[in-house]
Protein backbone atom coordinates (compact mmCIF):
# COMPACT_ATOMS: atom_id res chain seq x y z
CA UNK A 1 0.00 0.00 0.00
CA UNK A 2 1.25 3.40 -1.02
CA UNK A 3 -0.33 6.70 0.00
CA UNK A 4 1.46 10.01 -0.43
CA UNK A 5 -0.23 13.31 0.32
CA UNK A 6 1.19 16.60 -0.85
CA UNK A 7 -0.52 19.91 -0.09
CA UNK A 8 0.79 21.68 -3.17
CA UNK A 9 -0.21 19.90 -6.36
CA UNK A 10 1.53 22.78 -8.14
CA UNK A 11 4.93 21.44 -7.12
CA UNK A 12 4.28 18.01 -8.64
CA UNK A 13 2.89 19.67 -11.77
CA UNK A 14 6.08 21.71 -12.16
CA UNK A 15 8.21 18.60 -11.62
CA UNK A 16 6.40 16.73 -14.40
CA UNK A 17 6.43 19.68 -16.79
CA UNK A 18 10.19 19.95 -16.32
CA UNK A 19 11.02 16.37 -17.29
CA UNK A 20 8.26 15.08 -19.58
CA UNK A 21 9.94 16.31 -22.77
CA UNK A 22 13.30 14.83 -21.84
CA UNK A 23 12.10 11.42 -20.66
CA UNK A 24 9.08 9.56 -22.06
CA UNK A 25 8.63 6.69 -19.58
CA UNK A 26 10.21 6.23 -16.18
CA UNK A 27 9.97 4.24 -12.98
CA UNK A 28 9.04 6.22 -9.88
CA UNK A 29 10.63 4.53 -6.88
CA UNK A 30 8.98 4.85 -3.54
CA UNK A 31 10.89 4.05 -0.35
CA UNK A 32 11.25 5.31 3.21
CA UNK A 33 13.61 8.01 1.87
CA UNK A 34 11.09 9.44 -0.53
CA UNK A 35 9.53 9.45 -3.95
CA UNK A 36 12.32 9.37 -6.51
CA UNK A 37 13.05 8.88 -10.16
CA UNK A 38 16.16 8.31 -12.20
CA UNK A 39 15.97 8.15 -15.97
CA UNK A 40 18.05 8.80 -19.04
CA UNK A 41 16.82 10.49 -22.18
CA UNK A 42 16.38 8.18 -25.17
CA UNK A 43 19.85 8.93 -26.55
CA UNK A 44 21.57 8.30 -23.18
CA UNK A 45 23.23 11.71 -23.22
CA UNK A 46 21.38 13.21 -20.25
CA UNK A 47 20.11 11.79 -16.99
CA UNK A 48 17.42 13.10 -14.66
CA UNK A 49 17.44 12.39 -10.93
CA UNK A 50 14.52 13.55 -8.84
CA UNK A 51 14.02 13.20 -5.11
CA UNK A 52 10.95 14.31 -3.20
CA UNK A 53 11.85 13.54 0.41
CA UNK A 54 9.31 11.62 2.47
CA UNK A 55 9.33 14.24 5.25
CA UNK A 56 8.30 16.91 2.74
CA UNK A 57 4.94 15.19 2.29
CA UNK A 58 2.02 15.90 4.57
CA UNK A 59 1.38 12.18 4.78
CA UNK A 60 3.74 9.48 3.55
CA UNK A 61 2.92 5.81 3.71
CA UNK A 62 5.00 3.35 1.79
CA UNK A 63 4.77 -0.13 3.32
CA UNK A 64 7.56 -1.52 1.20
CA UNK A 65 9.76 -0.28 -1.62
CA UNK A 66 7.80 -0.10 -4.83
CA UNK A 67 8.63 0.92 -8.34
CA UNK A 68 5.88 2.29 -10.56
CA UNK A 69 6.40 2.64 -14.30
CA UNK A 70 4.65 5.67 -15.70
CA UNK A 71 4.39 7.48 -18.99
CA UNK A 72 5.40 10.99 -17.98
CA UNK A 73 3.34 12.67 -20.70
CA UNK A 74 0.21 10.91 -19.46
CA UNK A 75 1.05 11.68 -15.83
CA UNK A 76 1.53 15.34 -16.74
CA UNK A 77 -1.87 15.32 -18.52
CA UNK A 78 -3.56 14.05 -15.36
CA UNK A 79 -1.75 16.47 -13.07
CA UNK A 80 -2.72 19.39 -15.31
CA UNK A 81 -6.29 18.65 -14.19
CA UNK A 82 -5.32 19.71 -10.65
CA UNK A 83 -5.18 23.33 -9.51
CA UNK A 84 -1.85 24.43 -8.10
CA UNK A 85 -3.26 24.85 -4.60
CA UNK A 86 -5.10 21.51 -4.59
CA UNK A 87 -3.87 18.78 -2.30
CA UNK A 88 -2.79 15.74 -4.27
CA UNK A 89 -2.80 12.18 -2.95
CA UNK A 90 -0.99 9.46 -4.88
CA UNK A 91 -2.36 6.00 -4.08
CA UNK A 92 -1.50 2.50 -5.24
CA UNK A 93 -2.45 -0.89 -3.83
CA UNK A 94 0.07 -3.71 -3.64
CA UNK A 95 0.30 -5.54 -6.93
CA UNK A 96 -2.03 -3.13 -8.68
CA UNK A 97 -1.36 -2.09 -12.26
CA UNK A 98 -2.83 1.36 -11.74
CA UNK A 99 -2.06 4.45 -9.68
CA UNK A 100 -4.65 6.94 -8.50
CA UNK A 101 -4.18 10.69 -8.23
CA UNK A 102 -6.77 12.33 -6.00
CA UNK A 103 -7.09 16.10 -6.05
CA UNK A 104 -8.84 18.03 -3.29
CA UNK A 105 -9.57 21.73 -3.56
CA UNK A 106 -8.45 23.89 -0.59
CA UNK A 107 -12.06 24.28 0.61
CA UNK A 108 -12.68 20.52 0.16
CA UNK A 109 -15.68 21.22 -2.06
CA UNK A 110 -14.24 19.51 -5.11
CA UNK A 111 -12.62 16.09 -5.05
CA UNK A 112 -11.41 14.41 -8.23
CA UNK A 113 -9.93 10.99 -8.86
CA UNK A 114 -7.75 10.10 -11.82
CA UNK A 115 -6.67 6.51 -12.27
CA UNK A 116 -3.71 5.92 -14.55
CA UNK A 117 -2.41 2.66 -15.98
CA UNK A 118 1.08 1.71 -14.89
CA UNK A 119 3.53 0.15 -17.30
CA UNK A 120 6.46 -2.27 -17.12
CA UNK A 121 9.61 -0.34 -17.81
CA UNK A 122 12.88 -2.14 -18.09
CA UNK A 123 15.15 0.73 -17.18
CA UNK A 124 18.80 0.83 -16.35
CA UNK A 125 19.65 2.34 -12.95
CA UNK A 126 23.02 4.04 -12.78
CA UNK A 127 25.15 4.50 -9.69
CA UNK A 128 26.18 8.12 -9.36
CA UNK A 129 28.98 8.45 -6.83
CA UNK A 130 29.22 11.52 -4.62
CA UNK A 131 31.91 13.62 -6.26
CA UNK A 132 33.98 16.68 -5.41
CA UNK A 133 33.55 19.07 -8.30
CA UNK A 134 36.32 21.39 -9.49
CA UNK A 135 33.91 24.27 -9.98
CA UNK A 136 30.48 25.01 -8.56
CA UNK A 137 28.41 27.98 -9.68
CA UNK A 138 25.21 29.11 -8.00
CA UNK A 139 23.26 31.68 -9.95
CA UNK A 140 19.77 32.92 -10.70
CA UNK A 141 17.79 30.08 -12.28
CA UNK A 142 15.91 32.48 -14.55
CA UNK A 143 19.15 34.14 -15.69
CA UNK A 144 20.61 30.74 -16.55
CA UNK A 145 17.44 29.90 -18.51
CA UNK A 146 17.67 33.17 -20.40
CA UNK A 147 21.34 32.55 -21.27
CA UNK A 148 20.68 29.00 -22.52
CA UNK A 149 17.74 30.17 -24.62
CA UNK A 150 19.64 33.14 -26.09
CA UNK A 151 22.77 31.15 -26.95
CA UNK A 152 20.68 28.26 -28.29
CA UNK A 153 19.37 30.53 -31.03
CA UNK A 154 22.95 31.13 -32.24
CA UNK A 155 24.82 27.84 -31.83
CA UNK A 156 24.24 24.14 -31.17
CA UNK A 157 26.87 23.92 -28.46
CA UNK A 158 27.72 26.04 -25.44
CA UNK A 159 31.14 26.24 -23.85
CA UNK A 160 30.85 26.85 -20.11
CA UNK A 161 34.05 28.13 -18.52
CA UNK A 162 34.44 28.86 -14.83
CA UNK A 163 37.21 30.99 -13.36
CA UNK A 164 37.52 32.68 -9.96
CA UNK A 165 36.04 35.87 -11.44
CA UNK A 166 32.98 34.41 -13.03
CA UNK A 167 31.34 32.02 -15.41
CA UNK A 168 31.45 32.44 -19.15
CA UNK A 169 28.98 30.97 -21.64
CA UNK A 170 30.09 31.00 -25.29
CA UNK A 171 28.68 29.74 -28.53
CA UNK A 172 29.50 29.77 -32.22
CA UNK A 173 27.10 29.31 -35.11
CA UNK A 174 26.67 30.02 -38.81
CA UNK A 175 25.59 33.61 -38.14
CA UNK A 176 28.37 34.46 -35.69
CA UNK A 177 29.50 34.08 -32.11
CA UNK A 178 28.28 35.05 -28.64
CA UNK A 179 29.88 35.34 -25.21
CA UNK A 180 28.17 36.03 -21.91
CA UNK A 181 30.12 36.53 -18.71
CA UNK A 182 28.37 36.45 -15.37
CA UNK A 183 30.65 37.87 -12.72
CA UNK A 184 30.73 36.68 -9.16
CA UNK A 185 28.30 38.95 -7.34
CA UNK A 186 26.81 38.66 -3.88
CA UNK A 187 25.89 42.34 -3.43
CA UNK A 188 22.35 41.91 -4.72
CA UNK A 189 18.89 43.02 -3.61
CA UNK A 190 17.42 39.55 -3.82
CA UNK A 191 19.30 36.48 -2.58
CA UNK A 192 18.34 34.50 -5.68
CA UNK A 193 20.06 37.00 -7.99
CA UNK A 194 23.49 36.28 -6.48
CA UNK A 195 26.21 34.58 -8.49
CA UNK A 196 28.46 32.54 -6.22
CA UNK A 197 31.51 30.65 -7.44
CA UNK A 198 33.39 27.96 -5.55
CA UNK A 199 36.35 26.84 -7.55
CA UNK A 200 39.36 24.64 -6.98
CA UNK A 201 40.49 24.63 -10.62
CA UNK A 202 39.28 26.58 -13.66
CA UNK A 203 37.08 24.31 -15.80
CA UNK A 204 35.90 24.66 -19.37
CA UNK A 205 33.57 22.13 -20.99
CA UNK A 206 31.38 21.96 -24.08
CA UNK A 207 27.73 20.91 -24.02
CA UNK A 208 24.85 20.55 -26.47
CA UNK A 209 22.64 23.60 -26.02
CA UNK A 210 19.36 21.78 -26.63
CA UNK A 211 19.82 19.68 -23.50
CA UNK A 212 20.72 22.69 -21.36
CA UNK A 213 17.59 24.40 -22.67
CA UNK A 214 15.54 21.30 -21.80
CA UNK A 215 16.88 21.36 -18.23
CA UNK A 216 15.75 24.95 -17.76
CA UNK A 217 12.13 23.77 -17.93
CA UNK A 218 12.72 23.17 -14.19
CA UNK A 219 13.28 26.91 -13.58
CA UNK A 220 9.90 27.37 -11.83
CA UNK A 221 11.07 24.92 -9.14
CA UNK A 222 13.82 27.12 -7.68
CA UNK A 223 15.13 30.66 -7.53
CA UNK A 224 18.72 29.50 -7.93
CA UNK A 225 20.38 26.84 -9.99
CA UNK A 226 23.60 25.06 -8.99
CA UNK A 227 25.95 24.10 -11.80
CA UNK A 228 28.74 21.66 -10.89
CA UNK A 229 31.58 20.86 -13.27
CA UNK A 230 34.79 18.83 -13.36
CA UNK A 231 36.97 17.95 -16.30
CA UNK A 232 35.91 14.77 -18.04
CA UNK A 233 32.71 14.50 -16.04
CA UNK A 234 29.06 15.20 -16.82
CA UNK A 235 27.84 18.63 -15.74
CA UNK A 236 25.22 18.62 -12.97
CA UNK A 237 22.47 21.23 -13.16
CA UNK A 238 20.54 21.16 -9.91
CA UNK A 239 17.30 22.83 -8.85
CA UNK A 240 16.75 22.51 -5.11
CA UNK A 241 13.16 22.51 -3.93
CA UNK A 242 12.92 24.07 -0.49
CA UNK A 243 12.26 21.36 2.13
CA UNK A 244 11.20 18.85 -0.56
CA UNK A 245 14.34 17.65 -2.30
CA UNK A 246 15.93 18.24 -5.67
CA UNK A 247 15.79 17.88 -9.41
CA UNK A 248 19.22 17.12 -10.89
CA UNK A 249 20.11 16.92 -14.53
CA UNK A 250 23.37 15.30 -15.65
CA UNK A 251 24.71 15.97 -19.13
CA UNK A 252 27.69 14.27 -20.77
CA UNK A 253 30.09 16.74 -22.37
CA UNK A 254 31.12 16.94 -26.01
CA UNK A 255 34.78 16.45 -26.80
CA UNK A 256 37.02 17.45 -29.70
CA UNK A 257 37.03 14.98 -32.57
Amino acid sequence: MLELRLTQAGLLKKVLESIKDLVTDANFDCSATGFSLQAMDSSHVALVALLLRSDGFEHYRCDHNISMGMNLGNMAKMLRCASDDDTVTIKADDGSDTVTFMFESPSQDKISDYEMKLMDIDSEHLGIPEAEYQAIVRMSASEFARICKDLGTIGDTVIISVTKEGVQFSTKGDIGTANIICRKNTAVDKKEEATVIEMAEPVSLTFASRYLIAFTKATPLAGQVTISMSYDMPIVVEYKMETMGYMRFYLAPKIEE
Partner: peptide, 14 residues
Protein backbone atom coordinates in the same frame (compact mmCIF):
# COMPACT_ATOMS: atom_id res chain seq x y z
CA UNK B 1 31.06 20.40 -33.38
CA UNK B 2 32.70 17.71 -31.31
CA UNK B 3 31.74 14.21 -30.33
CA UNK B 4 28.84 13.78 -27.94
CA UNK B 5 29.72 11.42 -25.11
CA UNK B 6 27.13 9.18 -23.48
CA UNK B 7 26.21 9.36 -19.81
CA UNK B 8 26.82 5.59 -19.54
CA UNK B 9 30.50 6.21 -20.24
CA UNK B 10 30.70 7.88 -16.82
CA UNK B 11 28.30 5.98 -14.60
CA UNK B 12 27.85 2.24 -14.28
CA UNK B 13 24.65 0.23 -13.92
CA UNK B 14 23.79 -0.80 -10.38
Amino acid sequence: QGVQLSITEFYCST
